[in-house]
Each structure stands twice: as structure tokens, then as C-alpha cells.
Simulated assay, not measured.
Amino acid sequence: MPRPCCERPRPLPLRPPPTAPPRPAGAVKLTAKGDNVFSGIVELPRSTAVEYKYIKKNPGGSVTWEPGGNRTFTTPSTGTHARNDTRK
């Protein structure tokens, strides 16, 4: 079942965990939902630790990674989980 994931203040898609190579081209594209609020849905396995980071795709194709460490959470064993993050 899809899990709501990303009410965001900025259009910064998800990044895979550090064990996987960074893949900006495979990032989840977020949709504008209002003034500085963006949303996306990602299906993830239950009871799984997740690390992610936001990126911004700049004009010309370069990518700016969110500063600081990865964001983390664990998916629930049942139901859905919404993330409401603020840009770092």
C-alpha cells in the first residue's frame, strides 16, 4: 500500500540511504501543494529503517544536496506514515 511521505516546504526529492550510491536522477519528484508545500508518495516495506535526504535540481541540471546528516525514520508495521519536514 502506498505510504504518504512528503508534505514539504521545498521541492527537494528523496535520496537513497548512504549504503546506496547517490542517484539524483532516480529521486522522487514532489508536487507543489501550496505556498512552499510539496508532496510525494513513496511505497516502502513495513518496519524498515529509512534514511533520506532532499535535493534541489538547479537550472542547467546541477544538484544541490540538503546540508547536514541524513534524515531517518522507521516505517510502521501497519498503516501509513506521513513525514512533515522543514528544510534545513
Score class of each variant (00 low, 15 high):
Ser47Glu: 12
Thr19Cys: 07
Pro11Leu: 05
Asn58Lys: 08
Asn58Leu: 11
Ser39Leu: 12
Met1Gln: 06
Trp65Asn: 11
Pro24Glu: 08
Ala49Ser: 09
Asn36Gly: 11
Pro45Cys: 12
Ser62Gly: 09
Pro16His: 03
Pro2Thr: 12
Pro16Ile: 00
Pro2Val: 14
Pro22Gln: 12
Pro67Val: 03
Leu44Ala: 05
Asn84Ile: 14
Thr80Met: 14
Pro18Met: 12
Asn70Asp: 14
Arg83Lys: 13
Thr80Tyr: 13
Pro22Asp: 12
Gly40Ile: 02
Thr31Val: 13
Val50His: 04
Ala27Trp: 00
Pro9Tyr: 08
Leu44Gln: 04
Pro76Ser: 08
Pro4Ala: 08
Gly26Ile: 10
Thr75Trp: 07
Asn58Trp: 01
Lys57Asp: 06
Asn36Lys: 08
Ala20Met: 15
Gly40His: 01
Ala82His: 11
Arg15Asp: 06
Ile41Phe: 05
Thr78Pro: 04
Thr19Arg: 05
Pro9Asn: 14
Pro13Ser: 15
Ser39Arg: 11
Pro4Arg: 09
Asn58Glu: 03
Tyr54Gln: 03
Glu51Ser: 08
Glu51Phe: 04
Trp65Arg: 05
Tyr54Ser: 04
Ser47Pro: 03
Phe38Lys: 02
Glu66Pro: 01
Pro4Lys: 08
Val50Phe: 06
His81Met: 15
Arg71Asp: 02
Ser47Arg: 11
Glu7Ser: 05
Arg15Asn: 13
Gly26Met: 15
Thr74Ile: 13
Gly40Phe: 02
Ala49Gly: 06
Thr72Tyr: 05
Gly61Pro: 08
Thr64Pro: 05
Cys5Pro: 01
Phe73Thr: 00
Asn70Pro: 12
Gly68Pro: 00
Arg46Phe: 09
Asn70Cys: 12
Cys6Asp: 06
Leu30Thr: 00
Phe38Gly: 00
Pro59Glu: 01
Ile55Tyr: 05
Lys53Gln: 15
Asp35Ile: 01
Ser77Ile: 15
Asn84Trp: 10
Ala49Tyr: 04
Val63Met: 07
Ala82Gly: 09
Thr72Lys: 08
Pro18His: 10
Asn70Lys: 11
Pro21Phe: 10
Pro59Gln: 03
Lys53His: 13
Val28Met: 14
Gly40Arg: 02
Ser62His: 04
Arg10Trp: 01
Thr78Gln: 11
Leu44Glu: 04
Arg46Met: 09
Gly34Phe: 00
Gly34Ile: 03
Lys56Phe: 08
Glu43Gln: 15
